[in-house]
Design a protein around this nucleic acid. Sequence first.
DNA 1: CATTATTGATAGCTTTACTATTATATTTGC
DNA 2: GCAAATATAATAGTAAAGCTATCAATAATG
Lengths: 227, 227
Amino acid sequence: MQQFLSNIQIKVNDYLFLKDPSSSELGKRIISGSVELMHEIGFEAFTFKKLAKEINSTEASIYRYFENKNKVLLYLTIWFWGWTESKLVFAITNVEDKELKLKKAITIITEDVLEDRRFKDMNERKLQKVVYDESAKAYINKLVDDENKNGVFANYKSVIQRVSDIILEINPDYPYPKMLVSTIIEGTHLQRFFVDHLPGLTSPKTNSDSDVVQEFFIDLAFKTIKT
Amino acid sequence: MQQFLSNIQIKVNDYLFLKDPSSSELGKRIISGSVELMHEIGFEAFTFKKLAKEINSTEASIYRYFENKNKVLLYLTIWFWGWTESKLVFAITNVEDKELKLKKAITIITEDVLEDRRFKDMNERKLQKVVYDESAKAYINKLVDDENKNGVFANYKSVIQRVSDIILEINPDYPYPKMLVSTIIEGTHLQRFFVDHLPGLTSPKTNSDSDVVQEFFIDLAFKTIKT
DNA sequence: CATTATTGATAGCTTTACTATTATATTTGC
DNA sequence: GCAAATATAATAGTAAAGCTATCAATAATG
């Protein structure tokens, strides 16, 4: 499995780039450098000029790959969803028990990745942090309709569809499966941000071993879908 | 009540402005103009230069009230939470039945305001849209810790605390009340955005009369807190 | 009525976001 | 092996955004 996973490549909608960053050495440096730099200084302060310096290239060269920094963040976000889907598929394949399957699925979409490093050009831990903290900025804007029309969010929709399907297996009458799944996913991002920065808006950590955010959403999901 | 409400003023933490916009004619124009302009063109495209033109003032004058556009958005967001809290307090005062009280509370925090206009300098409907679509950009950034230290989020925390308290009245053993409330609040924003722009990530509208987002969260809340 | 505070008008500076041009290095087809 | 195509680097430059400074005009206040 580990072996197989190390051979797969995450595909990202080509609307998001001018030249495929996975197709060249420089492109890969742009991606891994973007993750590093956004993780370090945040999306607002991130510029192509700073990135160019970081990866020993030039601003103009980066512009041949991406139109602007927004598309880079969206690229990373969509890559993240492709990666999440791949983890999800392997986690639930051949699991017969419906409830166990749902539990595994929610664990995947809410987990806090510590180290993964299956992809040598992608620091998944830092990527997850970037996606958690910044991804809403990538799609909550006036361009989202155009991006959506071009199929940009297909990876994200796949993840939601898959988990949604498991919910419907358990309770075919539950009326809001997708709403529940997207609430769990986006809620996880936000709660993790709150735990770190605005603890007054969230619940305190229980014991140090457990992941309170994950517990909360698993509990919420099972109670919500029960008839 | 309506009479009383028209006499109250929403207080916003003074860390957010250099000069209190509610203290002058120009200040009020900056606020109402910001709501109009952000609603129209979105936060990214919003600039103090454009705002100055809109309200017949100058860029430099606006800079005497606010350090930057981020603080304006945060000001609007915090005002929105103060306003929400005032609505919440009146909705639940003297309501004895715990479950009814919770239902009213969740209705307030998830409602889609059509017209309100109790505050002549604030278009609440447009403000709500701006807060729904853009507010995450105001606080999800590297400055949040500093802002939080200065008590900026007190209005927001109050709202969460109040609803949280009602949940604990119904079920004192529910372990994650604040997490649930902040998930409902932020989830509402996001689901409304999804319904409009990314319907594939959410559930379809049921019948045109009902508010599916509100229904979903009320259903979710009651099921989740039940023992 | 003198002083103080507020706003407007204008200028300017730095950074960001992006494009264009040319030179150099690398790859690829033949 | 060499010409042609392609990719990248180096550099320059433009427009807008973001922000500060100065000073004059006006309004408020004591």
